[in-house]
């Protein structure tokens, strides 16, 4: 329940436009007024083989938000800077925006295919933090969606 009322917002986007149109995955968490809950939204548009846009919205408890904040703080992503990260390209881009207390980050970088892309980059340590944080956040979001809606999000 640490600093329950500190501002918190999280958004992640990964997508590209190509022969199957605009394909993307996006989710965000936004704490609602009284801090007792937050809305979480999820969208996944893949036009490959079947044209389907999945959109889900749910409201999560403060314990879930506390855990997301904990994961973010432990990662120390708020200390990073995307200045030296690979820029978006024809394969698309990723965006990560987090507001946590007085800190705010808004990162944009290319999609990361594998850890090699991280190792070979100009800022491997910073990009590694991003790479693993994104995977951990996605795992949490996919679990929440799978349990709440009984669908496989991807």
């Amino acid at each position: 329940m640490s600093a329950a009322n500190e501002p918190f917002y999280l958004r992640y986007y990964s997508g590209h436009s190509g022969r199957f149109g605009h394909e993307f995955l996006e989710f965000d968490f936004r704490v609602l007024g009284d801090g007792r809950s937050a809305t979480a939204r999820y969208a996944n548009n893949s036009n490959y083989r079947n044209d389907s846009l999945i959109r889900k919205e749910m409201c999560v408890s403060s314990l879930v938000i506390d855990e997301i904040k904990r994961i973010i703080k432990d990662s120390e992503i708020m200390k990073e800077d995307d200045e030296k990260w690979p820029t978006k390209n024809k394969d698309g881009k990723q965006e990560l925006e987090i507001r946590l207390g007085n800190d705010h980050i808004s990162f944009e970088t290319a999609k990361i295919g594998s850890i090699n892309d991280v190792t070979d980059s100009a800022d491997p340590e910073g990009l590694r933090v991003f790479y693993y944080l994104v995977q951990d956040l996605k795992a949490l979001v996919f679990s929440l969606i799978a349990l709440h809606f009984k669908i496989k999000p991807i």
């Binding site: 007024g33 009284d34 809950s37 999560v60 408890s61 349990l147 709440h148």
Partner: peptide
């Protein structure tokens, strides 16, 4: 450990708009 429900109702008056 801490244990609580994961999913809740939106607060009143905040059903969809934000």
């Amino acid at each position: 450990i801490q244990v609580d429900f994961a999913f809740v109702r939106p607060p009143p008056g905040k059903t969809s708009g934000r």
